[in-house]
Every structure is written in structure tokens, then in C-alpha cells.
Nucleic acid binder design. Structure first.
Lengths: 346, 346
DNA sequence: CTGAAAGCGCTTACAG
DNA sequence: CTGAAAGCGCTTACAG
């Protein structure tokens, strides 16, 4: 005696009709549908996700693989994803990936293979070849967001352009002695560094500097506040401190700000600093940054995965351009000029 | 021809035996179990979560209701929860609750009733009576973390003590003119303000001030950086600015720091500021705070929910005190003295 | 310890 | 448009 039976009985129809009326799949007369829905509502009936999933093959659930949940950027992207999925009736289950090999094996070889999700979104994590293969063998749509690999489809920011834009801003203020704080490629990264986000930002920086006949310095941070502080201290205590720093993330920029403060170096009078992200607190720090709209990024990848799962072209019918093509264009970013950048001293 | 059948065939046993060998439930000979596991491993077999869930009634999935996923505190707690659940084979599905009434109805009346989860954890959200009732009617274990209601069990910090400790620190430095930035009770909160976290912190503040025969001022922030800045501006531009501010959260304390900076008020020479949380960037801001170990809070509530779901007393056998009793004690907090607090001027 | 069989609560061809 | 029935892929009493 399932709950479905109760509804069918109360509405005087078969369970098949209840299922059709409630899901909207298959034909039902308007009158029947209305009556069934009314009865279901009154009885507080909601179909069991596991039973429906088993019978239909649709889990109505999207898996999201995310590193470091306590990092602002990912939390914000996740929020964007959830904001698009929930209204469509999709749940999101979280798969936190760490550096622990045993944990990763459990994730890719077991957790993800339980058929609990219809598709998976991968947020900026460096995956091994085996892991990419494991994802592929799932037979599920997979989209990455900012993943450092070409293998996974999904929207992405043109990070080379981001690197160029940040550098251009500094150059246009007159800086010639600019250092970049980023991530060293060796740091446990994936196979092909050419697809790496930090590498792209750095490449943009170097290209822009080279275009002016300049050479930029590079110091490795690790995309944390502490790493940024460490890198900035190295730069600022050297024989020839730069007049400007382009940090590959806002959090590293905060670290650079601290390092400058420690040494009594005035920002922006003595030193300009620009970050990347559009972090929550950038306004508080009065930090100039390249905003990459992480919340919107989450929305975009959620829409893309939904389109893949439902086989739709997208919510809006639109004109001649297929929605999928539009959705696969590069993600926007924007320079936000605040008080940490100014012309160089002298 | 299910995947289970393949394994059973290859191992030369029945599907029942495969199920028992793989799950560890029921008896199986050591030899059979080893062989079945070896075959399953070789074939890459992992039981379908939806089929197993339907048959067993166990979803092996915990729902977490969380507001504002992009808030550091919640993201950190979530990380703590996931870190305990994943190793035990439990997935976590996220239910983001916002202020949108339609969205909340969808959550409490539909999403949560799909039997996708074995239990639910509620993170600090103000629930209406109807929502608490809806949670109760789920027939599932429910634990809150820092929920402003007595109805939901679960570990919690003694926030009155937190308020007292912060105030004591300021008092011990010699401050007499202390203001508290918190949250106004009217702000869309739940029925009983007595269970409210912000109210408790404020009560602790007032009790401690009263004990010295002093009266503290109160200004409402809204637990955001901007709200803290606004409240602090109000205090600092008044006729009689305080010599110390106790902010109910680190993020509001950051706002207060900004407001002081705007006005050229030196911290801590002219003004002391203390926050609550143990935020990631507190170290960067050199902020004195009451750390409440959010990651550990997540671990604790995850353990509590796991105990409720599995009916266990907990992982460690322990001594005479039941684990559950120990786990229900108040959560720890700790004063971290940094550079934003000092004796008052003069 | 192991197997045959029923059943978990839905969805969906297939007929009508 | 609607119903009877099979089936989704497991788990679990129930026997043996």
C-alpha cells in the first residue's frame, strides 16, 4: 500500500494516471489532472525520489565536485548553481574532493558510481588522468567550471585576457616594474599546464609586458592569503621592489596588502596592488580587482548541465543562434578600479 | 540483467549473497565474502544508490539546510560536516534556504519530503513554526546547529557565555564605555527571541556590564560587513563615542574597522574592537575574536546525526558517560587576543 | 552460511 | 485519455 495507491484510490483513478498527472509526462485530461493534483496536495503526497529514480532512471539530482568548500570563490559558485537548480526541482549533492588519495579514490571509484546523480559539475580542481577517465566512464554529462583541463566541456573565463587586462591597467597608470604573484606549475598540478588557470593569467601578464618591451617578475603564492603575504614579502624585501603587484586572486592580494602594511609601504602611493575575483571583501579593502562574477558562473554552468540532462537547447527559444552556442562563449569579467592602484611614485 | 546479476554469476553465488558480502550485513563465510569482493572489484561493481535505497529504506544521504552558502561561517561548518560523513559512505545533499517564501515552501513541502535523505541537519536558520512542524512531520532525525530554537536538538555554543567573555576581555583592559553591535530581534526572526543567538550574545554583554554597574549601548548591524560598518559609523559619529566595540561577528567587526579607518580613529589606540567567529581573515586583520571553531562544530553535528541515523551511541566506546551525553554538551569557544584590543586611551 | 522469492514505490510501454 | 502489468536493481525475511 504505497502512498501513490492512496492518492489513486482517493482520486478514483489508477496509479499510472496519478503518476502522469503529477509529473506532466504523458497525456492526461485537464479535468483528471486537476483532480489528481488537488487530491495529492490534500494528502500531502510527494513521490519518493528513490522509487521514482529507480523506475525512471532520472535521479533529478546533480553532483557537484568541489575542493575546499570554505573558500569564498567555490562557495559563491555553488550558491549560483543551487539558485538555478532548485527551482527546476533538481537537488544538488556535494562531493568534496581533497588531496587525500584514499578519499579521492573513494569519490571517483565508489561515491560517483552509485548512480545517485544525473550529471556532474566539476569546479576548478586539478584532476589526474585516471580521474578524468573515471568521470568519462560514468556515462553521464559532465561539465567543468574553470577546470584546468580541456577534456571537460563547460563555460570558462578567458584567463589569458584576464591577465592582460590586469597588467594593462597597471601599465596604463605608468608602471613598468610589475610583479605577478601566481601559482607555480609544479605544485601538484595536472598533466597539461597549458590549460591551467594560473598559467593562463601568468601568460597574459607576460604577453602584455613583452608587448611593451618589459619583463615582469613572477613569484609563487598558493592562492591563499598567507601565500600571497609570503610572496609579497619576498618581493618587497628584495633589492629592487616593484611599484606594482598583480596578484592572481583577491585573497593573495589581501596577503600582499598585509605584507606592505607590515613594512610601512603605502598603498597605492608607494605600491599598487590589483587582484582577481571580485571577492566579497574587496570593497572593504578598497581593492582594485578583475571581477569574474562567480555567482553568475555558477548559474551558467548549472544551465549548461541542465540543458545536457534534459536534452533541451535551453529555457529561452531565442533567435537563430542556438542557445548552447551562446552558453559556451567565454564568461565575462570586468575591471573594478578602487583605491589600491595609482600611478607609480615619483 | 542487473549489474548485481553479473557479479553473482561471475562469483558463482546468488544475488542475495553478493548483497550480503558487499554490505557486510547478514552472515557470509569469510571465503565467500573475499571472493565476491574480489569479483565485484574486478568488474567495477558499485550498487545503485537508488535501488539499494528503495529496497532497504536507507538513503545513505544526509540533507543539510543552509542559508547563504557564500557566508564563510556556513561554508566552513559544511566542510566540517562533509569531512565526517564522506568517510562513512554518506553523501550530503544541500538544501539552500533563502528568504523567498515560494522557495521555502518548495523546500519544506516538496524537496525534503522526497525521502532522498535519512536525516537532516539545519544550520542556523530562523524557521517559522510551520517549517519546524514540517521538519517534525518528516519522521526523520533532525539536528540543528546553532539554530535559534529549542525545538531542534543538536550541539550549541553557550552564546551568553560568549557575550560575557568578549565583554570581560574589554572590561579587564579597563574599558567602561563599551558598545555592542548585534542584530535587532525584530529583523524577520523566529517566534522566541530567547533562543536567538544574537540575543544571547547581547544578553551576555548586558549581564557583564550590569555586573560592573555599567550600561552598555547597543546598535543593530545585520551580521554583514556593511551592516557592521553602518552601525560603527553611527556610534563613532555620536556625541560620546565608545572606547570599545564588541561586534557579534567577525564580519561586522571588519565593518567597524573600516568605519574607524574612514574617520582616522586609531585601533586599538583610540578604539578597541573584538569580534566573534574565528574567521579566516581575522589573523590578517589582526582582529581579537572569540573563536568558535566552526569546522569542529560541523564535525560534531555530523557525528550526532550519524549516531541518530545508525542508532549507535557513537564511534568511541568510552567510559561510564554515554557518548550522546558528552556530545550534547556545549560547544567550546576561545578568546584569541590580537592587536585590535588594548587599554582605553588616557 | 546460502538461495529463492517477495517486495521496496514508483514509471512506462503496451493495449484499449 | 486511461488502466493492467511489467520492471527498475537492489535487500531481506524466510527456509533450508
Amino acid at each position: 500500500m504505497s502512498a501513490l495507491d492512496d492518492v489513486a484510490r482517493a482520486a478514483g483513478v489508477s496509479t499510472a494516471t496519478v503518476s502522469r498527472a503529477l509529473s506532466g509526462r504523458g497525456r492526461t485530461s485537464e479535468a483528471t489532472r486537476a483532480r489528481v493534483r488537488e487530491v495529492a496536495e490534500r494528502l500531502g503526497y510527494v513521490a519518493s525520489a528513490t522509487a521514482a529514480g529507480l523506475a525512471s532512471g532520472r535521479a533529478e539530482n546533480i553532483g557537484v565536485i568541489v575542493p575546499l568548500m570554505d573558500r569564498w570563490f567555490f562557495a559563491t559558485v555553488l550558491d549560483g548553481i543551487a539558485s538555478r537548480l532548485a527551482p527546476r526541482g533538481y537537488d544538488v549533492t556535494l562531493y568534496n574532493v581533497t588531496d587525500d588519495p584514499a578519499q579521492r579514490r573513494r569519490l571517483f571509484e565508489t561515491a560517483l558510481r552509485r548512480r545517485r546523480v544525473d550529471a556532474v559539475i566539476v569546479l576548478s580542481v586539478a584532476l589526474t588522468d585516471d580521474e578524468v577517465a573515471a568521470l568519462g566512464s560514468l556515462g553521464l554529462p559532465v561539465r567543468g567550471l574553470g577546470v584546468p583541463r580541456g577534456e571537460l566541456g563547460g563555460p570558462r573565463v578567458d584567463d589569458t585576457a584576464v591577465g592582460r587586462a590586469a597588467t594593462q591597467h597597471l601599465r596604463s597608470l605608468g608602471h613598468r616594474d610589475i610583479a605577478h604573484i601566481g601559482q607555480s606549475v609544479a605544485g601538484g598540478g595536472p598533466a597539461d599546464p597549458a590549460f591551467d588557470i594560473p598559467s593562463r593569467r601568468r601568460a597574459g601578464f607576460e604577453a602584455e609586458m613583452a608587448a611593451s618591451g618589459l619583463t615582469g617578475r613572477f613569484v609563487a603564492g598558493d592562492f591563499t592569503v598567507a601565500g600571497g603575504a609570503r610572496a609579497a614579502r619576498e618581493l618587497l624585501t628584495g633589492p629592487h621592489p616593484p611599484t606594482a603587484i598583480f596578484a592572481g586572486s583577491d585573497e593573495m592580494a589581501y596577503g600582499a596588502l598585509t605584507a606592505a602594511r607590515e613594512r610601512g609601504i603605502r598603498v597605492p602611493a608607494d605600491l599598487s596592488i590589483i587582484g582577481v575575483d571580485g571577492h566579497d571583501l574587496a570593497d572593504l579593502f578598497d581593492l582594485t580587482t578583475i571581477d569574474q562574477f562567480p555567482h553568475a558562473q555558477g548559474e551558467r554552468v548549472a544551465d549548461a548541465i541542465l540543458a545536457a540532462v534534459t536534452g533541451e537547447a535551453g529555457p529561452a527559444a531565442g533567435g537563430g543562434v542556438p542557445r548552447s552556442a551562446a552558453a559556451s562563449g567565454p564568461l565575462p569579467f570586468s575591471l573594478v578600479t578602487r583605491g589600491t592602484t595609482a600611478p607609480p611614485p615619483g
